[in-house]
């Protein structure tokens, strides 16, 4: 066991981990941040996406020890300071971009990463960027629509599709 320290959602966090402890395990089990989910064991589903030093990563595909000193943001850190939903979260609710909610944390984190890289993505760019996030409920329609809306695009024509 060794000590690991990082900043999670703006607060310092530390704990004892094994070499094999994954970042997602540290978040869920040591810190009790259960918003980040595990949906597969081959790195494809993306339910575990968090930001490490501002970049989207799969927290089930990174060891906790490798996040030593890093700035980590999880879905729990995405709301506004007053507790209200952030822009992307609000767009997901407004446009029914989630159903069972299990893939949602990863979707929100990937969407945030996309919009920080590309503030006004096209539909095709959004679909391409979500290659590593699998949703089984929504058929993706409303996820893509929500991200377009979060980017400030007019999505009213999509409702009529």
């Amino acid at each position: 066991m060794s000590q690991v320290s990082m900043t999670v959602n703006g607060k310092s966090a530390s704990g004892e981990v094994e070499g094999r402890t994954l970042l997602v395990e540290f978040l869920r089990e040591n810190l009790g941040l259960t918003g980040t989910h595990v949906g597969c064991d081959t790195g494809q589903c993306g339910a575990c996406v968090v930001h490490v030093d501002g970049k989207a990563v799969k927290s089930c595909n990174m060891f906790a020890a490798e996040a030593e000193g890093a700035e980590v943001t999880t879905v729990e850190g995405m709301a506004n300071d007053d507790g209200s939903l952030g822009t992307i979260q609000q767009a997901f609710q407004d446009h029914h971009g989630l159903q069972c909610g299990f893939c949602t944390p990863g979707m929100v984190m990937s969407a945030a990463a996309l919009l920080s890289e590309n503030p006004n993505p096209s539909e095709a760019e959004i679909r391409d960027y979500l290659e590593g996030n699998i949703c089984r409920c929504t058929g993706y329609h409303n996820i893509v629509k929500a991200i377009m809306a979060a980017a400030g695009q007019d999505v009213s024509h999509i409702a009529a599709e």
């Binding site: 869920r28 918003g35 879905v75 609710q93 029914h96 909610g101």
Partner: peptide, 21 residues
């Protein structure tokens, strides 16, 4: 009507079975 359950799912506050310890 927008879904009321979304708020907990969007903020990481859901309570899935694996969250129970």
């Amino acid at each position: 009507t927008p879904r009321r359950e979304d708020v907990r799912f969007l903020t990481g506050s859901g309570n899935y079975t694996d969250d129970i310890n």
